[in-house]
Design a protein around this nucleic acid. Sequence first.
DNA 1: AGTCAGGCAACGC
DNA 2: GCGTTGCCTGAC
Length: 285
Amino acid sequence: MSLPGLVEIPYEGAFSLEDTLKSGQLFHWERAALNDCAGYAGCLGSRGPSFITQTEEGGVYGLPDDGAVLSRYFGLDHAIESIHGTFPGEDAVLAEAIAYCPGIRLARQPMWECLATFITSSLKQVAHIRAISMKLRSRYGEAHELAGQTFYSYPEPGALARAGEDALRECSLGYRAKSLHLAAEAIVSGKFDLEAMESEEDPEKVMAALLELHGVGEKIANCVLLFSGGFHGAFPIDVWIERILRENYRKRVRGHKLQKWAVDYFGENAGYAQQYLFHFARKTL
DNA sequence: AGTCAGGCAACGC
DNA sequence: GCGTTGCCTGAC
């Protein structure tokens, strides 16, 4: 099957576009229709809008380019079966979480967009994170047209640095405005070398650089490693993960000890396990 | 009206 | 190291 004007994006294993978009990594994709085909559209970093859709049979189709950009962005190049092979053998909880939502993928977002979005996420719920992202985009990003709708790219660090903390506060950011503004300035000044960090292969180095930023702690840094850096061993612990580790895995420790246990126990793809468990916990606990 | 939410930094011990 | 507290905002 093919869809007019769209490129098919191949993948192996389970994939659900809907579940991936709802899984707490990506906050700005919007429903859109292209050539009478219903799907989702959004900007990747500072690029113009992309479009993606999934048929009932599971086929994934998108624009623009040859699909390689979208494939990488949505983790369609991940070998899910072999990732599952690295999980602990006997784990009924994880098995149930995977069965609950088998099609979730770890995205690979542009680093600045990911970092900035998670800086604004602290003590916020998904709907609000989304509202903040959209407001920042429409105010400081660049407008692009697709199929009669307007989509905004995520603002460049320079745009947010110039805007200033007080202006950012007007986007419902509260105390997060300071952190976001400082992060933007750190990138503009080169204090945080975004380009170097995007291509850095050692997660420890990226982690160390991220923790230097005001407003970035272990949780947000791990989110950036996992959702942008492609380091699938990173294991962000938020209240939901902590809850499921406590209630279903009987773990009573917290902080670094819990972090170390999780990484050791779930293994090299602990972050994928985290993503299944997170979604499962959010729906069932 | 008060509580609480998908963290963090600053401070006290 | 560990625990506590204040922080903006919106939803209930």
